[in-house]
């Protein structure tokens, strides 16, 4: 649905030129929810703004529904933009218009008459749960309600594509979840393709099918979301996955943890299981085959799209030799093993 081909974006000229995007290639399939993540300043925003030509790429092609937007004249671009809805971090609602009139704006721009506007706006009020707020002004609404208005407005022209520029970044976690639910609903019920950018892995985890990781203007990793979470290939990918999954260590453990091995200290390990290995009876194997005791300190199971991801924090105890053998065994298994440190038994 969206094809980005060899897109480069350079700001400025000569020695002061800043490259914002480097040879980006990306394909968003029809009906998918596609997430682009990266740190601030990585070029995410520039990338999504290239999809509706709010930024013109320096080179490359941007195809939406088969149409190359970089080749259109002003009039053609305006028409194409009616097929591309967009929502923003700061909502960008008109303070001078009521909820109803805000949603009606894109239709007014297309010269729709008031009957057509009413026919389009009312189902959107229903869909976004704003029926009782129809005559309110944005200043009377909460952040989540404002984003709902913005979503309804973006859908008013029945676009095929919805672009979301950090749409939940200004919202609290609870509101974020409800907005993400709404986006997922829209995607399912209206079949709209969604391209979103975010710095929150939580967003990707909850609603995206595919994800691309962008760093310093380049796309460094691209994968199906479940696979990305279990098998990130780049260091930055690992880091992002970690921020989405990590839980704080149990109370007091951090202080007892030593970086160095020493006699009588026991290792604290973290195992990450995914796919089939979730079912493997690893812990009981350790106890039986190596006479190692396993104390579980923390455990979590995450369902990310179709993938199940399990994480286990445990302390191993036994003879040094037994522990060494157990660790070697774990390394040969289809799990990820990390040693967080060593603790003195209490």
């Amino acid at each position: 649905m969206i094809n980005i081909r060899s897109v480069n974006k350079v700001y400025g000229e000569g020695p002061n030129a800043v490259t914002a995007l480097r040879d980006i290639n990306l394909e968003v399939p029809q009906g998918g929810i596609y997430g682009v993540v990266g740190r601030s300043g990585a070029g995410k925003s520039t990338l999504i703004r290239c999809v509706n030509m709010l930024e013109t790429p320096t080179s490359g092609q941007v195809l939406v529904d088969g149409q190359d937007l970089t080749q259109l004249d002003e009039q053609g671009l305006r028409l194409a933009r009616h097929q591309i809805g967009m929502i923003f971090q700061h909502f960008n609602l008109l303070s001078s218009r009521t909820v109803y009139d805000n949603i009606a704006l894109p239709l007014e721009l297309m010269k729709a008459d008031s009957a057509q506007i009413k026919a389009a706006v009312e189902p959107l009020l229903e869909l976004t749960g704003l029926t009782d707020k129809v005559d309110h002004y944005p200043s009377q609404l909460s952040g989540g309600q404002k984003q709902r208005v913005a979503i309804a407005r973006a859908l008013a022209t029945k676009p095929k594509v919805l672009l979301s520029d950090e749409a939940t970044s200004a919202l609290d976690p609870h509101t974020t979840r409800s907005i993400l639910e709404l986006l997922k609903n829209i995607n399912r019920e209206l079949g709209i393709t969604i391209l979103l950018i975010t710095h929150e892995m939580e967003v990707v985890k909850r609603i995206c099918d595919r994800v691309a990781l962008i760093s310093d203007g380049s796309l460094i990793e691209e994968d199906e979301v479940g696979h990305f979470f279990t098998h990130p290939t780049t260091a930055l990918g690992h880091e992002f996955v970690e921020t989405a999954l990590s839980q704080p260590l149990p109370e007091g453990l951090e202080d007892r943890l030593h970086a160095n091995k020493a006699p009588s200290r026991r290792p604290v390990i973290r195992l990450t299981f995914s796919g089939d290995s979730v079912q493997a009876p690893l812990i009981t194997q350790l106890a039986r085959q190596f006479s190692v005791d396993v104390s579980i300190l923390q455990a979590q199971v995450e369902h990310i799209q179709s993938q199940v991801l399990g994480r286990l924090l445990a302390e191993l105890s036994g003879s040094d030799e037994a522990i060494a053998q157990a660790m070697t065994h774990l390394e040969s298994q289809p799990v990820r093993l990390e040693v967080l440190g060593y603790v003195q038994p209490v």
Binding site: N52, L54, L77, R78, L79, A80, R81, H82, I84, M86, F88, H90, N92, L94, S95, S96, R97, L105, P106, E108, L109, M110, T157, L163
Partner: peptide
């Protein structure tokens, strides 16, 4: 008038004159 509003109007496919009459002037009223 916050520049984001102009950007939102452009993303909707507004003509320059529409941006002035429907967004810029009403918001600055």
């Amino acid at each position: 008038v916050p520049p984001g509003l102009i950007e939102a109007a452009q993303a909707m496919g507004a003509k320059p004159m529409q941006i002035i009459t429907k967004v810029l002037v009403p918001e600055a009223l």
